[in-house]
Nucleic acid binder design. Sequence first.
DNA 1: CTGTTAGCGCTTTCAA
DNA 2: TTGAAAGCGCTAACAG
Lengths: 339, 339
Amino acid sequence: MNDKPKGESPKSATGATMADVAALARVSRAVVSRAFSVDPRPISPEKRERVLKAAAQLGYQPNLLAQSLTTKRTNLVAVVVNHIHDLSDLDLFDCLLNAMQSLGKQVLFIRVNSVDRVEQFLRNGVAHHVDAALVWSDFADAATVRQMFRSDFAVMLNGRPDPLSPAVVPDSTIGIRAAVRDATEKGVRTAALVTGRESSPVEQARIQIYLHALSEHGVTLVQTVRAGDYTYQSGYQAGASFLSDKVPDAVFCTSDASAMGVLDACRAHFPESRPTRFRLYGYDNLSLTDFAAYPISSVGYDQEEFVEHIARFVAEPNSFTPGDPPVSVPTRFISRLTG
Amino acid sequence: MNDKPKGESPKSATGATMADVAALARVSRAVVSRAFSVDPRPISPEKRERVLKAAAQLGYQPNLLAQSLTTKRTNLVAVVVNHIHDLSDLDLFDCLLNAMQSLGKQVLFIRVNSVDRVEQFLRNGVAHHVDAALVWSDFADAATVRQMFRSDFAVMLNGRPDPLSPAVVPDSTIGIRAAVRDATEKGVRTAALVTGRESSPVEQARIQIYLHALSEHGVTLVQTVRAGDYTYQSGYQAGASFLSDKVPDAVFCTSDASAMGVLDACRAHFPESRPTRFRLYGYDNLSLTDFAAYPISSVGYDQEEFVEHIARFVAEPNSFTPGDPPVSVPTRFISRLTG
DNA sequence: CTGTTAGCGCTTTCAA
DNA sequence: TTGAAAGCGCTAACAG
């Protein structure tokens, strides 16, 4: 109890500052700094004790913004997305948020649904000072991201790898091949492919893998339907293609959302719980495919595992060496009623 | 083109600073500050021109962290949630993110799925310095939030209003009454209520409104099923209650997710596309209820409108005066196949 | 309109 | 081990 701190009085509006604590504990500000430092710094136990006590008394909180001015580290991580409409995002982001927070990072969500927004963020915001940027949005390549955020550390998750940045990508090959194999084992000989937004590199790659897997297993691709984007609605429209007499043995969709649309479009005409005229395969393994109404066979990866890789890169940036190949997370085939 | 800036050379690692620009443009740092200020400050057009040009040349970006050290404003807004599992979140957060960014704010997502996490955030992070906290999580009251974030500006969206903080709440009454009225008009006399996590004040209030609306319309509540939380799975389990011969005329669920579960549970036994033995009403008006498989009559509010109110509070904190009542956003009833 | 001068709250040499 | 002092990058009076 120091009844007369000699520094200026704590301004409750702003919160107590280091100077207030230093005055109360009768030490220098430097000592306060050391007392709060995470890595060991020279300080006598008694003084540390005094400081901590004084801090508690004043309700002192180190100002991390001020801190970051000198340390150049903000404990902020940016998550850059096109939007968060996609159902698949929900499952992932909760997991991600949790992981980042466990690392002591706080997550800045940045939505860039068009390229012209990029400019806006260059002007605006604290975003420049994040420790790392986790990039889902495919609006930009790694180079752009690295300059957009002053951070030199971007983790690419948008299928646009870059030798200078770490990347994590699901390895669709395994899962898709398993799906196609499953189909052939059930007698599928012809197939249709329902694709999403083809400007996305991820989608491009996925399509190639399907094409390859199909030909590899001797399945003839008789039809390709561009469904516009990964939405239910686009899938529903695409579904109209499969109502005629002449339908392929199987329909592969590059997203579960589209597959759900296809399924419902068929149900609108033939009220079975699954399309009996063809087998249906989705992609993403949305938690929704566990709902009874959408028992869609799908391809997915372990999101915890995916996020773990990201977290590792964030926690130990040095675990990445320029030139390292993208980390790949295996996918697997999940069989459900439609497949 | 100044071929010899007289200040220190720009350190490309950190990025150019105000001093670099000032040197290049041959003005004082204060002038640079003014040139970049949003609100009008005295500066001659020529000098502003020179500064902007120099800045462009150097790729200078004002450091908003440093800025906030003096201005006490960070342009950061915290969104505090329990988690982002709920399907209803998806629709809302994208909208919110967009709105905040339009205001030039960046959004910090903070996930506090348990009360003990609060402590962690008190120690950690930049969160203390946000300009505003938008609170969905019901883990804490306004007072706690106000001290958790040093910000004195919290917007309560969790149904825990506080005289000192603005709040926005959906006015469930309108929509729920409309739903019940719709039911009675269709001959409903008895009803069951499927409830969610009752520790949530929002849920508590919602239940009361249902009870009131039911009795008001002369509908007898014959059964209440606690479905645990707002999930499909809990709804599915609850659905078992409605498979016997003796079922109520209508089942009201306090969330669409539960209603979807109830619907599928019934379908598992009676393969109609809607439960023919009772009418089914949900709540939230999830975009999923527009999917053909879940044509659930529901109660919802206009999310754009909801978010607009929030945005207004953030943009003009003074539009709130302590003691003001919560802003309420009307809900409406959306009739679909099941209702 | 402009430049000078203090800070904002904290970290980090560098002597003591 | 400690404290003084010099910044980090920027804003905000205050004279001129």
